[in-house]
Design a protein around this nucleic acid. Structure first.
Length: 730
DNA sequence: CAGGATTCGGTATAGACAGCATGTC
DNA sequence: CTATACCGAATCCTG
C-alpha cells in the first residue's frame, strides 16, 4: 500500500515522501484496512521495529489536522523524550508537541495548547487526578507497550487510566500498541478494537542457540570461530568481523560489568585508528561526567570499544553509551534488561547470556517468553543490517532442545490484569472517587466494570476487595464516614493529587502524630517505611553495622519490631539501611564513598534521593494540612535531599549553578550566606569556583543587590509556611 | 618449586513511575 | 524455601 493512496492531507503525504517513506509495511497496511484512519479502535500486536510508531503518527496526524488532540502514553521517561523528539519533526506541519513526565514538565494547563502530548502512564493518571481541563479534548489516545498491563506494580495504573480516558471521551479513538502476547484477541475485545496481529519484520531475524562452537537456527547452522575460551566473546568478535555490533544481555549488574571488562582485550584489537580516537573522546566525556570508580571502569571499557549499561549508571552516562553505540563506535554493550524494552537501540547480534534471573521469592527462574522476545527483537537494524541474529547459549544438547522449545518455538504468554488486590486498588479507588467518577458503591463498581480486570474475571470478585479499600480509606479519614455516598475529604483529595499510595500517607500521618522528638533520622526512616519507597537489600556484611546503628539510635525510631520476628525485622533493617544512605547523602558524603559503602551505583543514589524527596514533600504537605508537627522539618529535609547537603548550606543553594560541592567550598571559605557572598570580591569567588561560575553567581545576587529593596540576608525566597497552614478537623 | 588448573565455600542477585519548581560538577 | 554464577582462597597437578 502506497502512502500516496492514503486518506490523508497532501502535506502529510509529502512529509513522509520527503523522508523517503513511500510505502507501508504489510502490518501497517493491514491496520489502515481495518480502519486506522477512520477513527476505529485498534490493537496492533506486532514486533518491535515493524513500524508501530508510524501507525501512531498517521492516526494522530489525521485526527489533529481535523482539529483534535492526541495523547501518546509511554511507560518510560526515556521513551517519552525519544517520542517527543521524533514528533517535533511535525512542527513544519504546524503541529505543536508537548511532553509531560515527572522530571520534565510544561505546566499542566499550558500543555493543553499542544496538539500532541507525550506522557508516561502515571503522569497521565496524575493529570486526570488534577482535573486538567484539556484532557476532555483528546480525540486519539495511543497506548504504547500496552502489554505492561500485566505488570503487578504498574499495570493497574495503565488499565485504570485507559478506562478513565474512555469514560471521559467515549468517542475517542484508542490505538494500543503491544508486543506479541498470547491473548491479544482478549485485549482487543476489551478495548472494542480491531486486532492487527503479525510477526512480520522489516529485517530478517534468525533466532537460534549456540552450542559447542556452532550457532543452530531453525533451518541452518553455522560454525563460529573460537579464538578465545569465552563463547560469548567469540560471538561478539564474529559479529565485529562481519561489520556488526552486539548487544549482550546479562542477568545481574555484576556480570554485566564483568563481561564488558572481560571483552576489552579481544575487542580492542579489532579497532581502527579513527575508532580509537572517537572512543577516547567518549571515554573522556564519561570521566568529565562522573568521578566514581564505576565510571572510570566504564571509561576504560569504552576506550576499547565495549561498554556496560544498567540502572546504576546515571542518565548522562547511559546516554553517552547509547549514542556511542548508535553511531557505531562502541562495538559491544553488555546490558541488564534496561535495554530490553523501550529505547530503540538495535544491534546486528543479540546474545542472551543468561535466560535465568534471580527473584527473591522463586530463586533462579527462566525469564518469560515475552521478555525473551523483547530482547531477541533488538537484533537487526532496519535498513542497516542484512539480518539480525538472536543467540541463546546452551551448555548441553538437552539445554539446546529445551531452549528451542521454551523460547524460539514458543508463543508469548497471556497477559493478566493485576488490579485485583487491595494494594493495587486502594489508590485507584480513592482517585476515582476524588475525581467524581463515582459517588456511590454502585457507580464505583460500574466504573470498574470497564477495566481489563473485570473483562477478564468479571468484577464480581472485585467487590470484596473494594470494600476493604473503602473501609481503609474511611478509617484513615480520606473518605467521609457516610456509608451511603462516596465523597473524599480534603485529606483524601490531597493524597490523590500528590499521587501517593493512601497507605503511605496514612503511615506518615500516624508517624508524625505519634512521634516524640523529630530528628532527621526519625523523618527519613518514616519516609523509608512507606510502601512507595524503594528499599535496599541487606547484604550479610551490613547486618552488624546497621544493627549497631539501630541500637545506638533506638529512641529515634517510631517503632522497632521484635528482632525475633525475622521477616519483619529484616524488612526494618532494610528501611534503616536506606535511611542511612539518605543520611550520608544529606551530610554531603562524596558520591563515590556512598557507592562503595552501600555497593550501589551513582544512578541508584539519585533515584533513591528522588523518591525520598517526593515522599518528604508529601510528609510536609500532610503535616501542614493536618496541623501535625514536622512540617517545617520536612520542608527543610525535602530541600536537603534534593541537593544532598547539610542545613547550613541551604541559603547558598538558592543560587543557580551552586550545588552541594560548590556551596560547601564557598561556605568553608567563609561565605556562608548570599549576603556575605555579595560583599565578596569577584576575584575571591573566582579563585574558589572558577571565573565563569563566579560571574554567574554575581549576576544573580548582584541583581538582587542593586534592587532598591534592602540589604537583608534573605534576598531569595525562603518561604515561611506560617499562615498557609490549614487545620482540618478530624 | 613455580605456575596454572581445579575445587570449594561464601556471597550476591533487573528495572523504574509519581509532586513541585527550576538548573549539579 | 526452591538456583546459579562469580570470586577468591585453598588445594592439586604438571612440567
Amino acid at each position: 500500500m502506497k502512502i500516496e493512496s492514503l486518506d490523508l492531507s497532501d502535506e502529510i503525504k509529502r512529509f513522509y515522501e520527503n523522508s523517503g517513506i513511500l510505502e507501508l509495511y504489510p502490518p501497517q497496511a493491514k491496520a489502515v484496512e481495518k480502519g486506522l484512519l477512520e477513527g476505529k479502535n485498534l490493537l496492533a500486536a506486532i514486533p518491535t521495529a515493524s513500524g508501530k510508531t508510524l501507525l501512531a503518527e498517521l492516526a494522530m496526524l489525521k485526527s489533529v489536522l481535523a482539529g483534535g488532540k492526541a495523547l501518546y502514553i509511554v511507560p518510560l521517561r526515556a521513551l517519552a523524550s525519544e517520542k517527543f523528539r521524533r514528533f517535533q519533526e511535525f512542527s513544519g506541519l504546524g503541529i505543536r508537541v508537548g511532553i509531560s513526565t515527572g522530571d520534565y514538565d510544561k505546566r499542566d494547563e499550558g500543555l493543553g495548547i499542544n496538539d500532541i502530548i507525550v506522557a508516561t502512564s502515571e503522569k497521565t493518571d496524575s493529570l486526570l487526578r488534577n482535573e486538567t481541563a484539556w484532557m476532555q479534548e483528546i480525540s486519539v489516545v495511543v497506548a504504547d507497550e500496552v502489554h505492561l498491563i500485566d505488570s503487578p506494580d504498574r499495570g493497574p495504573t495503565l488499565e485504570v487510566t485507559l478506562a478513565k480516558l474512555r469514560r471521559m471521551n467515549p468517542s475517542c479513538q484508542i490505538l494500543a500498541l503491544s508486543a506479541t502476547v498470547g491473548n491479544a484477541d482478549e485485549l482487543a475485545a476489551w478495548l472494542d478494537a480491531e486486532l492487527v496481529l503479525s510477526e512480520w519484520r522489516p529485517t530478517d531475524l534468525m533466532e537460534g542457540v549456540f552450542y559447542n562452537g556452532t550457532f543452530y537456527c531453525r533451518d541452518k547452522e553455522k560454525p563460529v570461530e573460537q579464538p578465545t575460551k569465552d563463547e560469548a566473546i567469540n560471538l561478539v568478535l564474529d559479529t565485529i568481523k562481519e561489520g556488526g555490533q552486539s548487544l549482550v544481555f546479562e542477568s545481574s549488574r555484576k556480570n554485566c560489568m564483568g563481561f564488558a571488562k572481560k571483552a576489552v582485550s579481544a575487542v580492542k584489537k579489532t579497532l581502527s585508528k579513527e575508532d580509537r580516537e572517537a572512543l577516547a573522546g567518549i571515554a573522556d566525556e564519561i570521566l568529565e561526567n562522573s568521578e566514581t570508580d564505576i565510571s572510570s571502569v566504564l571509561a576504560n571499557c569504552v576506550r576499547a570499544g565495549t561498554a556496560f549499561h544498567h540502572a546504576g549508571l546515571t542518565t548522562p552516562l547511559r546516554e553517552l553509551v547509547e549514542d556511542g553505540f548508535r553511531n557505531g563506535k562502541i562495538k559491544l554493550i553488555s546490558s541488564t534488561p534496561t535495554l530490553a524494552a523501550g529505547l530503540n537501540l538495535p544491534a546486528r547480534r543479540v546474545v542472551i547470556r543468561s535466560y535465568r534471573r534471580y527473584s527473591s521469592e522463586m530463586g533462579m527462574q527462566p525469564i518469560p517468553v515475552l521478555e525473551y522476545k523483547q530482547m531477541a527483537g533488538r537484533a537487526g537494524r532496519p535498513r542497516l543490517d542484512p539480518y539480525g541474529e538472536a543467540v541463546l547459549l546452551a551448555k548441553s544438547y538437552e539445554e539446546l532442545v529445551f531452549l528451542f522449545e521454551k523460547y524460539i518455538e514458543a508463543g508469548a504468554e497471556d497477559i493478566w490484569s493485576k488490579l485485583g488486590t487491595e494494594n493495587a486498588l486502594r489508590t485507584h479507588v480513592l482517585s476515582t472517587i476524588s475525581n467524581g467518577f463515582a459517588r456511590t458503591k454502585e457507580e464505583l463498581m460500574d466504573f470498574l466494570e470497564a477495566t481489563f480486570f473485570a473483562f477478564q474475571y468479571s468484577n464480581f470478585g472485585l467487590s470484596a476487595v473494594v470494600d476493604e479499600c473503602l473501609n481503609f480509606l474511611r478509617q484513615e479519614g480520606m473518605l467521609e464516614k457516610d456509608p451511603d455516598i462516596l465523597v473524599s475529604t480534603v485529606l483524601g483529595k490531597l493524597v490523590s493529587r500528590l499521587y501517593i499510595d493512601p497507605l503511605s500517607a496514612a503511615l506518615i500521618a500516624k508517624g508524625l502524630r505519634e512521634a516524640g522528638t523529630l530528628t532527621e533520622l526519625t523523618l527519613l526512616h518514616l519516609i523509608c517505611s512507606t510502601p512507595d519507597m524503594r528499599l535496599m537489600y541487606m547484604r550479610s556484611q551490613d547486618y552488624q553495622e546497621v544493627n549497631d546503628y539501630v541500637m545506638a539510635h533506638a529512641g529515634e525510631f517510631s517503632r522497632i519490631p521484635d528482632p525475633f520476628n525475622i521477616a519483619e525485622y529484616e524488612w526494618f533493617l532494610g528501611e534503616v539501611k536506606t535511611s542511612l544512605l539518605l543520611m550520608d547523602w544529606i551530610h554531603e558524603k562524596p558520591e563515590n564513598e556512598i557507592c562503595l559503602k552501600f555497593g550501589i551505583g551513582e544512578g541508584d543514589i539519585h533515584s533513591t534521593a528522588d523518591i525520598a524527596e517526593w515522599i518528604m514533600h508529601v510528609a510536609a504537605q500532610l503535616a501542614g494540612l493536618l496541623g501535625l508537627k514536622g512540617a517545617k522539618e520536612a520542608t527543610e529535609l525535602e530541600k536537603r535531599i534534593r541537593y544532598g547537603a547539610a542545613p547550613e548550606l541551604m541559603d547558598l543553594l538558592d543560587i543557580r549553578s551552586v550545588g552541594r560541592v560548590r556551596a560547601r567550598k564557598l561556605y568553608e571559605a567563609g561565605f556562608k550566606t548570599t549576603a556575605e557572598l555579595a560583599a565578596a570580591s569577584p576575584e575571591q569567588i573566582a579563585a574558589l569556583v572558577g571565573p565563569k561560575i563566579a560571574e554567574r553567581i554575581f549576576k544573580q545576587i548582584g541583581r538582587k543587590g542593586t534592587a532598591p529593596e534592602s540589604t537583608t540576608t534573605e534576598p531569595l525566597e525562603k518561604g515561611s509556611p506560617e499562615g498557609q497552614r490549614t487545620i482540618s478537623d478530624f
